[in-house]
Each structure stands twice: as C-alpha cells, then as structure tokens.
Design a protein around this nucleic acid. Structure first.
Lengths: 147, 147
DNA sequence: GATAAAGTTTACGTAAACGTAAAGTAGTTT
DNA sequence: AAACTACTTTACGTTTACGTAAACTTTATC
C-alpha cells in the first residue's frame, strides 16, 4: 500500500528531523505503538502517519496529551459505539472552533506584519535620503551600485 | 487615545482571562513594563496591547521568548538604526514563512477533520438502521420523536 | 574475535510557564 | 480599631517535552 511497510527508529527520526529520544518518548506516552523484533522497535506506516500528525499538532500548538486524546477517541470510534461517535463529533466541532480562532489570529498577525514592514521600509528610505545628502554620489556610480 | 489610560493588574487579568500571576510573570520576563504608584503596578494602554499580542502569540504557538524578541526588535527599530531595521525585515520574512506553514497545517487538518466527521456520521447512520430493524417504530410516534 | 554501528533501558537534569502557598502592605469600609 | 479588599514580594512546587549521560545488547564489518 504505502511506500514501505516498516521503519526503524532512526529512519523516522531522519525523515521528520526529530531525535530518537522524542520518538521513544511518544511511545512511552502511548502515541505510537511500534512492535518489536527482539528488543528493537519496528514502526508501521500507521505509526509513521501518527508521527506526522503528532508533529503537525505541535506546530499548531497542540499538546501531546491533546493529540493522544484524539488518537484514542478515533480508535474507539472504529469499534463504533454510539456514545463515542457522538463525543467524537462534538470534539471535532471544538477543534474546528480552535482552528477558526487560529485563522483569525494569523490574519491579524499578517496585517500587523504588513504595517510593520511598511514602517521599516519607510524608515530605511529616510536613512538612505540622509546618506545621500551627506555623501552625494555621481549618477553613473549609483546606477551600478543600486543593482 | 484609547478607551482608557491606565489599568490595574486585576482589570487586565479579568479582561483577558489570565491570572495576575501570569501578568506578573510576563513583567518579570520583561514583556510588560508597567510603572508604579508606590509598589502597585500601573499598566498603560501600550501594556494592554502588548498583553493582547502575548496571548495571541501563545495561541499561535509562539514562546514568550520569541514574542519578547519581536517586542525588543520592534522597539529598536523605532530608534531607527539601519542594521536593526534590516534584521527586523528578515525576521518578518521568517515569521511569514511560519504563518504559511501554519496555514497549510490548518488546511490539512480541516480536510482530515472533514473526512473523519463524514465517517462518524456514516457509522452513526449504520447504527440507526440497525436500531430500527431491532425495534421498528410506528410512523406517527417517529414523526414527533424526530423533532 | 575485536570493534564499530545502531539499538536498547534506566535515570537524573532542564527550560518554559506558570501554580500555589506564606506573609506582608496599603487603602477603605463598618 | 477591626476587618476586608486588593495589591505586593519571596520562594518552592509542578507539568510538559524532551536532553543527556551511563551502561548494556545485537548485528554487521574488518
């Protein structure tokens, strides 16, 4: 199905640029459930997907506990009990609200960064003007320097 | 001219739903710089804005250190040194890249939540069908119960 | 068969972001 | 004046998410 069936710990660590320590920690917290050959961990492509989700969750500001809760809930829905299904739906709604908030936050931040950048560029332009007054440059030289 | 000139610590705490402990911590970390009347803190509307920014930063997954760095850099640009201005511009570019990443993450998450929700609803529909088969209900009764 | 390479467990350490007493001050209400 | 309220400082405690070192095993290579 996927590109590959199993992965070693360092393969995953390299691919996602995390330490093996982190991966072991995620297993300890029961976010990953690798099998074993001897004492060596063997990760499935499902584990790989989960790792990807964990890291995306982190970038979005989710704690490992939150992510684990989602994983567990999702697993429970697969053995479809009605109560779990309904709970999952409400949690999904909550998460959606969170995402909306984040989108607003990002939009705001982008606007403020626009004005901040504009002010920076203005200030820089001012400095350039002063420089020119102090040390005016011949036209020919300026043309090449502006490149 | 804002709504008000100064704020007490508990006013801000209430407005933004944080503890006074947190606000004092932010001051300790030099993200806020309230003045004092005696030993009592007095927050300006600038502090209020910064608090808002701090909290938004947190929601976006920024550490207090990151936010402080931005504050400090911004302050330095106001006393416009060229080097600082250029540094600010490059940092702004980095932040923009971060925001792009976050927007991608959010979009991905939304898609996956869509499919997750769909599966939940399907599973629920299946359960409803089984229920009906086990205990079929009279039409009239169902009509009112469905409300 | 020595040695390196990649894996393991155990366990103490750490940075961030507060929580939570404890104990004191300053103003103001009864 | 006693009590209440809002504020303060000091300082130790806690959770999260790993870092880091020490001391093995297992497997591949020279």
């Amino acid at each position: 199905m996927d590109i590959k069936k199993t992965y070693s710990i360092s393969e995953l660590a390299k691919e996602f640029d995390v330490t093996t320590r982190s991966i072991r920690f995620y297993e300890d917290q029961e976010l990953l459930r690798p099998t074993r050959r001897g004492q060596t961990r063997i990760f499935s492509s499902k584990d790989r997907v989960r790792l990807k989700l964990i890291l995306r969750g982190k970038r979005m500001g989710f704690s490992l506990a939150e992510t684990k809760e989602l994983f567990d809930l999702w697993d429970e829905t697969l053995s479809g009990n009605e109560k779990q299904l309904l709970k999952m739906l409400t949690i999904l709604e909550n998460k959606r609200a969170q995402l909306e908030q984040q989108k607003n936050d990002i939009a705001q931040a982008e606007m403020e960064m626009d004005t901040a950048e504009a002010r920076c560029r203005e200030a820089l332009a001012e400095l350039q003007k002063k420089k020119k007054q102090q040390a005016p440059v011949k036209e020919e030289a300026r043309q090449t320097a502006e490149n």
